[in-house]
Design a protein around this nucleic acid. Structure first.
Lengths: 240, 240
DNA sequence: GCCCAGAGAATTGTGCACAATGTTGCGCGC
DNA sequence: GCGCGCAACATTGTGCACAATTCTCTGGGC
């Protein structure tokens, strides 16, 4: 089974939807990377994706390039594009950036939160809780990240919301790459407390809690112990 | 004189350097937009840039797409790419994002600043002061933005530094698009005070001053009065 | 004078063949 | 067995011709 066919197979894990523009290709690659259907180090060849998606090389290149700016894939000159595999240093910077940026979104949201926004966040937490209870950990984790993205969007600043979306995606990569010592036990409670503070417009407390929450996720990871990943990845790092 | 030739001329305002990859094209377009050599609303046709830079359509498309991701150019489907012209709402979001993110970089920098970093920032302020004194306002403004980028880089977080770089560039667009009531009188003093606080590791004071500084730049703009540009500009350049 | 239709122009997206470049692997000499 | 060189391979970048789409402008009908 050559690589091209295999890649198509990965794309086909769900039924293959119609993709006719760069946005669609981007979305599918983004989801596949975040959900770990495409593992770090996987090679993403233009021609393979052209066949997989049924769109031209130009669109594929556009999608890949966007993912590379978002640091989800790495381009190696004249070699190709690979799914990114962040190292410990990058991981630390991502968490530091999240603390700074989400402090901003939390501040804005806690200041201006209305009942409808609070309800949407509560709904997110409720769904996550249920999914976790039923054992659907992947979907639960997905929603857990979505909580941060959602709050950022509700804060009303598109610039910050976009950054949070990307940083959450990178966090997803990182969490899956490094060993996680505590599991994700603490997430749920923090999110609920956070909503409570925002509902009462207790800005200081909400911001403090958010910073602490993200720091806790970071500290639950063993950043000096990376998962044994695919062999190609070694080369990715060797040439980087 | 057709449009293609004229665009080459804009590119040629300085001597035309060798451009042989997407990075070069991106850098030149980025500088041209930030320095207002390419005005908001200017149409950027692929083929025109291919001739201007002497590289292939693929590279040009890559550079344009990256600029679009950075919100410095806007793609209109099946129409082409145009230099962005942020509206008041976007401007407000950019300033809000800068306050949040640069609070983070300032905090990190004020905590960890060493003598060498302080010296580099002082040097920046000194140069800017001199340029302004000699009447080179454009270069002075350039350096003034560079102060923020430099501090972000020195803070040690590449993620945040990259964001600051982009937000500073967008601010440059905004400052030139909206009427500026106070001039840029306050910048210099704030920067110097900021360095002083960072040197003494007075984190709280430094962060507060940075937030206040950015808010002051924002408040000096008449965000409800935009320069007469954009739409007309497209026409003027297209038909000339 | 005004409105609508249709031709024309401009520009991006695609497909194919080929060039450029870096990688891989094999065989050869030692 | 080991290092070296060379050739085949894989992959991206380019050029050209053409398709598709959308705006623009002109002209006829009223």
């Amino acid at each position: 089974m050559n690589q091209k066919t295999r890649l198509v197979g990965v794309m086909n894990q769900r039924n293959r939807p119609k993709i006719d523009d760069a946005e669609g290709a981007y979305q599918h690659l983004f989801d596949a990377i975040v959900d770990q259907r495409l593992l770090p180090g996987t090679k993403l060849t233009e021609l393979a994706l052209v066949e997989a998606f049924g769109i031209g090389r130009r669109m594929v290149a556009a999608a890949l390039q966007r993912l590379s700016w978002e640091k989800l894939v790495v381009f190696i000159p004249n070699r190709g594009a690979y799914v990114a595999a962040p190292d410990a240093d990058e991981a630390r910077q991502v968490f530091a950036a999240r603390i700074a940026i989400e402090a901003g979104t939390t501040e804005a949201f806690a200041r201006a939160a209305d009942a409808a926004s609070i309800a949407r966040l509560r709904d997110n937490v409720r769904q996550e809780h249920q999914l976790r209870h039923e054992g659907h950990m992947r979907e639960a984790i997905h929603l857990s990240g979505g909580f941060h993205t959602l709050m950022a969007e509700l804060s009303g600043n598109a610039v910050l919301a976009d950054q949070v979306r990307l940083l959450v995606a990178r966090t997803s990569l990182i969490v899956n790459l490094f060993e996680n010592q505590l599991g994700l036990a603490g997430w749920h409670d923090h999110h609920e407390d956070l909503i409570a503070h925002c509902e009462k417009h207790e800005v200081e407390e909400a911001v403090f809690l958010m910073r602490d929450h993200i720091a806790e996720i970071r500290d639950a990871l063993a950043l000096d112990r990376r998962r044994p990943v695919s062999f190609d990845m070694v080369r990715v790092f060797a040439t980087r």
